[in-house]
């Protein structure tokens, strides 16, 4: 791997800015993804990894389809492009979504079931500390989802109380919380490291 990795950041709606600043702070080049052409060019996939930020999952799903980014994103990640999804990003990566909005779809890449807004409304949103397989974390849960089913081949990285809130399947990581709001960089560093591993 020469030079810094390029991360495609899905930038149609949501908490994009904090992820961009964090990735750039770690030395990555960030490309906003707003259409299928932003992700896949004539020479193939233009980025080394993708990040799906938090936001409103039902809105982002609609925009992904409206701008023909849904299928290229699904195909690229399925073909091995490393991916990190936070909050709404986790919902979008999941195979199944409980209590989805009418017509809402997901990319179906992580073999888990996710329940949206499972930790309550905004008055239940919280900053908290979590134990994880990557060490202790301080993160924010904002109207957060949880993982209600973990498929075979999926590793649990963290729980909050009894709920699974971070998972990994190969090069795809999904987390229910927001490390970018509290300055927790471990997931972003892992995403960039997985690029280096892939290219060896």
């Amino acid at each position: 791997m020469t030079g810094s990795p390029t991360v495609g950041l899905v930038a149609l709606q949501g908490g994009v800015r904090e992820h961009r600043l964090m990735l750039e702070g770690l030395g990555a080049r960030v490309v906003p993804l707003r259409s299928g052409d932003d992700l896949v060019g004539p020479d193939g996939v233009r980025v080394d990894a993708v990040l799906l930020p938090g936001g409103e999952s039902s809105t982002i799903d609609k925009l992904l389809r409206m701008f023909d980014l849904f299928e290229p994103l699904r195909a690229s990640i399925a073909a091995g492009l490393p991916a990190l999804g936070t909050c709404a990003g986790l919902v979008l990566l999941a195979a199944d979504v409980d209590d989805r909005a009418p017509g809402q779809r997901s990319l179906g890449l992580l073999d888990v079931t996710v329940r949206r807004n499972a930790l309550g409304s905004q008055v239940d949103s919280a900053e908290t500390e979590l134990a994880s397989t990557l060490g202790p974390l301080r993160v924010a849960f904002i109207r957060a989802p949880i993982v209600t089913r973990v498929g075979p081949g999926v590793d649990v990285l963290a729980r909050r109380n009894e709920h699974v809130v971070a998972v990994r399947q190969g090069t795809i990581t999904g987390i229910a919380f927001h490390p970018e709001l509290t300055g927790e960089t471990v997931f972003h560093r892992r995403l960039l490291e997985s690029v280096h591993c892939n290219s060896v």
Partner: peptide, 22 residues
Amino acid sequence: MTTVIGSPLVKRGLADMLNGGV
């Protein structure tokens, strides 16, 4: 383990997630 609800970060955080939206 400290858990904080209603902090400025959590309040402003939801607004961050509405960015770019209607």
